[in-house]
Design a protein around this nucleic acid. Structure first.
Lengths: 193, 193
DNA sequence: CCTAAAACTGAAGTGATTACAACTTTAAAC
DNA sequence: GTTTAAAGTTGTAATCACTTCAGTTTTAGG
């Protein structure tokens, strides 16, 4: 069914270790900066070997404080299916509600968000995670428009949409920026006055 | 005037060494694949030390077969200034004529293009080079539209435009793809039928 | 209890990249 | 043309992310 079943001590420990790694890595990154921490230190602090660390997080140091992206992917797919509004409106709503970068974030998550935005490697990895949704989004857009999935406009729109979190994440007013970008995608350039 | 003056033996040698590195790296990459060649081998073949190699190409292995991006930047700036057509039309023309990814490429450059497209690290670096034009393009778009340079739509359009080379580089008909993407940027989604 | 799969480990290796201190070349002033 | 300081080059050693591997432990499940 799901990618990983959640029965048994084994899986529970696995998840627990992964969670501990995430917590330790974030704590150390926040304290000393991303480049000020080595994976060896993180493994040490999490009380596992370096080899095991990489077994748990094969995508490397960047990936330590991120989930595997399956939530985003599922979220986008869900947002785009079963709707009664244009697809871009649905995506707009999705980002406004959930984007890690966009609107109101609980204050305890703010330091993490700031760390990511200010650390090129982490920001880049977050961007990659969003773009890992490209195949799904492309398929959805093709479905919706009746165009083939390899249509250049379809591919381009998917790419552009997934660039939005990184783009609006740094804006002073993320919600307004979000609206502005979606308006651009809907109406084109130059913007209607 | 320019970033580097071209007088004197010193500068000439510098350029010569850089050119040799480019040539050697490309040759070896094409022969054994990007991951099948170490920088040590490249330095050896180019008859300089590894330290010197990195002095010449501080951006690392990825950057070996690329110029420093100043040409692209100058090209875009030039394309966007002194024109009698809409700015997107000028950019369309620019990419159609010159994008390393887009239309007709002399057959001797094809292997290099293929190598870049098929090697994630190189493709990524090429993307970065294009996006290094973002400040210039943003400024030009702001100028052109009267909007402030930090306007979300302006920033978004610059970002989207610079994603185009990577996007259309893999299309079966690059010129058509280019036209399709520019149509999207001009008229918005869904595309007019 | 038994066994095979899965997880964990330390140690050693690879490869990119940097730091450094010594040595050489060059530009340019005197 | 000698001097001098900056710029370029080099070998060596280090750091760091990441991988490999062979051996050990743990666990699931019959």
């Amino acid at each position: 069914m799901g990618v990983v079943v959640n029965t048994g001590r084994r899986e529970r420990r696995k998840l627990e270790t992964r969670r501990r790694l995430d917590e330790v890595a974030l704590r150390l990154f926040l304290a000393h900066g991303y480049d000020g921490v080595t994976v060896a230190q993180i493994a040490e602090e999490a009380d596992i070997s370096v080899a095991t660390l990489f077994a748990h997080v094969p995508d490397g140091k960047d990936a330590l404080i991120f989930d595997d992206g399956s939530e985003r992917r599922a979220g986008i797919v869900a947002a785009v299916r079963d709707r009664d509004e244009p697809i871009l409106a649905a995506l707009h709503r999705f980002f406004a509600a959930r984007g890690p970068y966009s609107t109101d974030i609980p204050p305890e998550h703010a330091p993490k968000r700031d760390l990511i935005v200010q650390t090129p490697a982490l920001r880049e990895y977050a961007r990659k995670l969003w773009h890992s949704c490209e195949p799904d989004l492309t398929a959805a857009l093709a479905d919706d428009s009746g165009l083939p999935p390899d249509d250049p406009a379809v591919r381009a729109l998917a790419r552009f949409v997934l660039e939005i979190p990184d783009l609006t994440g740094t804006a002073p007013d993320p919600a307004a920026a979000l609206a502005s970008v979606f308006a651009l995608l809907e109406s084109g350039w130059p913007p209607r006055t």
